[in-house]
């Protein structure tokens, strides 16, 4: 994280990155290409992790696997157990069952936790101290006090002009940003962010998103984020865990997810066999048959009219035809027990 300002400079007012070389994240310029996820070492690995409060499981036999370089999105409703899981990982809550491995090491957990930056629930700062004083105090606690880095981090989150303002005078969004600066203190290797965009305006959310992507891709920082905003999370995460009622109901990586929620065309026809033949002649191989003459087609989904025309030319009666966008949000809502639209 040394000289972090030289690498990143975000404009929290405009919600964009200011440095010329880093102007567009989507181009992936200069970013380290990620190796195969399965080849990367574990940063967090839990086995049957459980935590009970008055006989009610807040975390129930959870097996989480976060690998180095992941941006791991943890999704779940309020009370699903996300924060409790984070607290257990950070050592703030003791598990009743199960084991945790941090950075491939199950023996020196306390030592490993020094490599974690975090923002849990709400930014914890002393109201009477300024941003700088608060960060200095926390850096001293961590044993990583470096005045230059503190100033750079405060600048990084767009609070450079408010550095000597007391924390009590900060707005919710400013407090959240200072929380992010705190999370980055001491050059952590793993960031755990619980609802990091709470209270931020859309532009600041965009800036945080960009910051997360930059830190992950350029510094290979592993980041675990929980958020209620699935659409926002899907813009950064490359791996997801879905929690409901304390259980991890699904853990899925981006490739798998794209496979599941990829766009498709749904056809209801009078002759499935003939339809398959016509689709194959068009180069569409990826199809799935269902009951009542339904055919799902996963290739050439942007060529709806061409497909319908070709089927009609071949004498196939089409009862209905519709194109469906891959909807990550709906997929996760269905996993959380809601109604998939």
């Amino acid at each position: 994280m040394e000289n972090i300002k030289q690498d990143f400079e975000f404009d929290f007012v405009k919600g964009e990155i200011k440095t010329a070389t880093d102007s567009d994240i989507s181009e992936n310029n200069g970013f380290q290409a990620k190796t195969d996820r399965n080849l990367r070492p574990y940063v967090i690995k839990t086995e049957n992790l459980s935590k009970f409060y008055k006989n009610k499981a807040a975390v129930d036999s959870v097996n989480v696997s976060v690998r180095q370089g992941d941006i791991y999105g943890l999704i779940g409703k309020n009370g699903a157990g996300k924060t409790t899981l984070f607290k257990i990982i950070l050592g703030l809550a003791k598990p009743d069952n199960g084991t945790i491995e941090l950075f491939n090491d199950a023996t020196s957990i306390a030592e490993s936790r020094k490599k974690i930056g975090y923002l849990i629930e709400y930014p914890s700062f002393s109201a009477k101290l300024t941003a700088f004083e608060n960060l200095k105090y926390m850096a001293l606690q961590k044993g990583c006090y470096d005045e230059k880095q503190i100033i750079e981090l405060i600048d990084l989150v767009g609070l450079g002009n408010e550095i000597h303002k007391k924390f009590s005078a900060y707005s919710l969004g400013m407090k959240q940003r200072l929380g992010l600066a705190f999370a980055l203190l001491g050059s952590p290797e793993l960031l755990i962010l619980d609802e990091p965009v709470n209270g931020l305006d859309p532009e600041a959310i965009q800036a945080v998103r960009n910051l997360i992507l930059k830190l992950n891709r350029e510094k290979n920082l592993t980041i675990v984020i929980s958020s209620h905003l699935i659409s926002e999370l899907s813009k950064v995460a490359d791996c997801y865990g879905v929690m409901a009622n304390g259980k991890l109901v699904k853990e899925i990586d981006e490739t798998e997810l794209n496979e599941i929620v990829k766009p498709f065309i749904k056809l209801v026809v009078d002759d499935q066999t003939k339809t398959i033949d016509v689709l194959k002649s068009m180069g569409i191989e990826n199809v799935k048959l269902a009951n009542n003459g339904t055919v799902y087609c996963y290739d050439l989904v942007n060529r709806l009219s061409e497909i319908s025309k070709k089927l009609a030319e071949n004498g196939i009666v089409i009862f209905s035809i519709s194109a469906n966008e891959g909807d990550i949000e709906n997929y996760f809502i269905s996993l959380l027990g809601g109604n998939r639209q």
Partner: peptide, 10 residues
């Protein structure tokens, strides 16, 4: 939150 921070950082 000072206690929490102290407890986390090793």
């Amino acid at each position: 939150g000072a206690t929490r921070n102290a407890a986390i950082c090793g």
